[in-house]
């Protein structure tokens, strides 16, 4: 059955403008729509009324790119688990519901417009060591010649599934980025290819994380619950161990 919804959406014209929650009514929303399709329909309605459509981030719309964000009814990526906003469907809501839609909030993620935030702080952290240096001049070693245990490969792959969406920061009461940085550090710390630069990687990435103004982890575990890829808190513990190994 189609639904009639009340939407409360954060509207902000630009990075330096004041923002506020604005109320919208949307009728005949199909439960089969995705959440972003619902916003597309709302934007059509706003355009037909001569208004400015709501700006929101999206790209692949299949939970891979990490571009969509949104804090929906008080939760990053909405009330479902293990999904991004683009994978959220309107069947999770009921006719007559009021839905609060806000941008991911953190000082390190400033609002650009409406629901779009600047997450380039994550890119700058990655630039500090979220990679390995490999000679690609033609004599690259075959990756399969390096024996890696199944367990380590699985754990590294789990860490590598982080799509950098920022839900961990958005949901953490301290706006901590430690789940993201922990995943990026772990991904290489678990593999032999990552050992050469391990010390510099963790020191530089943590320093950049602190410089960007993210908060400190207090182990509430909220990030792990809201992470669309189920990145484990183990990665934060591993980053802590790597950090101390690098500094002792």
């Amino acid at each position: 059955m189609d639904m009639n919804l009340k939407l409360k959406i954060w509207r902000q014209s630009g990075a330096n403008d004041e923002g506020k929650m604005v109320d919208y009514s949307l009728a005949d929303v199909s439960p089969d729509m995705s959440f972003l399709e619902m916003l597309d329909v709302l934007n059509e309605q706003i355009l037909n009324e001569g208004g400015e459509p709501v700006a929101f981030d999206h790209d692949c719309r299949e939970g891979i790119c990490g571009m969509c964000s949104l804090y929906i009814n008080g939760e990053a990526h909405g009330p479902d688990r293990g999904i991004t906003t683009c994978q959220l469907h309107m069947r999770k809501f009921k006719d007559g519901d009021t839905i609060y839609i806000e941008p991911f909030r953190a000082k390190a993620f400033p609002v650009i417009k409406d629901l779009v935030v600047d997450r380039t702080a994550f890119d700058r952290i990655q630039h500090q060591g979220g990679f390995i240096s490999v000679n690609t001049s033609g004599n690259t070693q075959d990756a399969n010649s390096l024996p890696i245990s199944k367990h380590a490969a699985d754990e590294a792959m789990d860490a590598a599934t982080c799509i950098g969406c920022g839900a961990c920061v958005a949901t953490c009461k301290n706006s901590s980025a430690m789940l993201f940085v922990g995943a990026k550090v772990s991904q290489y710390a678990l593999l032999p290819q990552g050992q050469v630069e391990a010390s510099d990687r963790v020191k530089n990435m943590v320093a950049q994380m602190d410089l960007e103004g993210f908060g400190n982890c207090t182990n509430t575990g909220a990030c792990e619950v809201e992470c669309p890829k189920g990145i484990s808190l183990d990665n934060i513990a591993r980053m802590n161990r790597e950090f101390f190994k690098a500094n002792i």
Partner: peptide, 17 residues
């Protein structure tokens, strides 16, 4: 930690996670 979020959420469901 408080200063790391300069604008608070209007609706935040901390108990969910």
């Amino acid at each position: 930690n408080k200063s790391a979020r300069n604008i608070k959420y209007v609706k935040n469901n901390g108990a969910a996670n």
